[in-house]
């Protein structure tokens, strides 16, 4: 079920870029979307419910929208940049995933391009010297971004051709579902390990910015990575739970 705010009845994604996370190792892709939403101060325009999603409700996750309530699948928009970011806050229920994925593709297929963010187990990277990044893109996406993807100086990602992305959740299945509908889609993932994945999340956003700087515009100046501006959302407080009680010692 799609909820849209301000009495909007449809989601018009013409010329929009959609970024959505898969629920992957270390939740790195969801953390990256959190950074994107908080840094670009995206506006919540709606949410999705489905039996595949465990309902979630609580205080706002971001400083810039203090009156919002979190839900399991949220839609955030940057109207100026024609950007839509989807955020998931709960794992999915496997037996309903197929129908939810279809619903999601139907909803988002009108977009100009779709970028799926994900992660894979670090130990799946067989050659240590290789790039920690890999991507998979549909032919029409490659056409749109031929200049960037063909520039080895800018993009150092390895093209993934395998049949599985271990630890990537439903990323590859989602990619295939969009590709079947001829949506320009790219799946970008990083090899990483469980732990404090906040750094991986900022690296994912930075890398995405290399490809999509035209609309992400996350650099504050013309300098290098040091000038990269990211805002950490307040929901990242206590990412690893409470402090250990002193009574323990």
């Amino acid at each position: 079920m799609l909820f849209l705010k301000e009495k909007r009845s449809t989601l018009d994604l013409t010329e929009y870029t959609v970024i959505l996370p898969s629920i992957c190792v270390g939740n790195a892709a969801q953390l990256a979307c959190d950074l994107l939403i908080a840094s670009k101060k995206l506006r919540r325009i709606g949410s999705l419910t489905h039996p595949a999603l465990i309902p979630v409700y609580g205080p706002s996750a971001y400083q810039h929208e203090p009156n919002e309530k979190v839900s399991s699948c949220e839609l955030y928009e940057g109207a100026e940049d024609k950007l839509l970011v989807v955020q998931f806050r709960a794992p999915w229920i496997a037996r309903h995933t197929g129908s939810f994925q279809q619903e999601l593709v139907e909803l988002l297929k009108g977009a100009r391009r779709v970028v799926i963010l994900s992660g894979s187990f670090g130990f799946e990277r067989r050659v240590i010297e290789e790039s920690p990044w890999a991507y998979r893109a549909s032919d029409n996406f490659k056409e749109i971004h031929a200049a960037q993807l063909g520039n080895a100086e800018l993009i150092k990602w390895k093209e993934h051709t395998g049949e599985a992305i271990y630890g990537g959740g439903n990323a590859l299945q989602l990619y295939k579902a969009f590709d079947e509908k001829n949506v320009a889609v790219m799946l970008l993932f990083r090899y990483l390990l469980e732990g404090d994945n906040s750094t991986d999340a900022s690296l994912i956003v930075k890398e995405l910015n290399e490809l999509c700087e035209d609309f992400l515009q996350l650099r504050s100046g013309s300098g290098g990575d040091s000038s990269f501006k990211l805002t950490v959302p307040k929901s990242w407080n206590l990412l690893f739970g409470n402090d250990i009680t002193e009574l323990l010692f």
Partner: peptide, 17 residues
């Protein structure tokens, strides 16, 4: 991490509705 219920990543495609 993708699924709350007990399901492997390569299994869910073949799950019955």
């Amino acid at each position: 991490r993708a699924f709350w219920d007990d399901c492997e990543e390569d299994e869910f495609e073949n799950m019955k509705p």
